[in-house]
Amino acid sequence: MKVIAITGGIASGKSAVTNQIRKAGYKVVDADLVSRQVVEPGTHTLEEIKEVFGQAIVQNGVLDRKALGQKVFGNDALLKQLTKITSPEIQSVIKDQLSFFKIKGEPVVFAAIPLFFEQHYEKTGWFDEVVVVASSERKQLERLMARDHLDEWAAQARIKSQMPVQEKIKKADLVINNDGSEAELAAQVAELLKNLEKK
C-alpha cells in the first residue's frame, strides 16, 4: 500500500485538497478528525487535559477548543504540555487506521496531517511521499482570520506555533501552491491524481 501524507501550514488549503481527493474515491486518514475523537467525553485524554488546564476548558462535559486555543497559542510551554498529552494518542489512532486500510487491500491511502514535520511523522517509516500545500503568510493570515474569526494577533500566534512553510517545502516530495484561485488549486490536485494513476 502506498501512503501519501498531505501537510502544510494552518489555513493553507489542506482541507480543499483532501476533499477533492476523497471525491475522487481515495481513502483519507484525517489527523484533525482524529484529534477531535481522542478528546471526546469519557476519554482519558480529556481527563488529563482537564487536570493540566483546569475544569474551565470543559463545558457540559465537552472540550471547549476555543478556550483551550486561547490558552496555548502564544504560550510555548502550555502548547508543549498539550502536545505531550494528545500527540501519542493521535499517532496511535492514525497507525491503526493505516493498518486497517492495508488489511483491506487499499492500493493508495492519503493521510492529512497538519503537524507532520513538527511531530516527526517523517521518522515513522509509514509514508512513501509527502505533499505540502503551501501559500504565502499573508494569504494564510487572511484565510485564518476569516475562517476562525480571529484578530491578527491571535492568527499570527497560531501561524508562528508551526514550522515555517518554507522549511516544509524543503522537505516535500511535491508542493501544491494555493495562492491562486480554487480552480487553480483543483487543477493541481487533479494533476497529482492523474500522475498517481499512471504509476
Rank of each mutant, 00 (worst) to 15 (best):
K2W: 06
K2M: 10
A5W: 10
T7H: 01
G8L: 04
S15Y: 05
A16G: 00
K23P: 00
A24I: 10
V28P: 03
V29I: 11
A31F: 02
R36A: 09
Q37Y: 12
V39F: 05
P41V: 04
G42P: 00
T43V: 09
E47A: 11
E47G: 11
E48S: 12
V52M: 10
G54L: 03
Q55R: 10
I57E: 06
N60Q: 12
L63P: 01
K66E: 08
A67F: 05
A67W: 00
L68A: 06
N75D: 13
A77D: 15
K80L: 08
T83R: 13
I85R: 06
T86D: 03
P88T: 03
E89M: 07
I90E: 08
S92F: 01
K95Q: 12
D96L: 14
Q97T: 06
F101V: 05
I103W: 07
E106R: 03
I113M: 11
L115Y: 02
F117G: 00
F117I: 00
Q119D: 15
H120C: 12
Y121H: 12
Y121L: 03
E122L: 07
W126Q: 04
V132Q: 04
A134W: 01
L141M: 09
D151M: 02
Q156E: 12
R158V: 03
R158L: 02
I159R: 05
K160W: 05
S161E: 00
V165C: 05
V165G: 08
Q166T: 12
K170H: 04
D173Y: 11
I176N: 09
S181H: 13
E184R: 06
Q188W: 08
N195Q: 11
N195H: 15
L196A: 12
K198W: 04
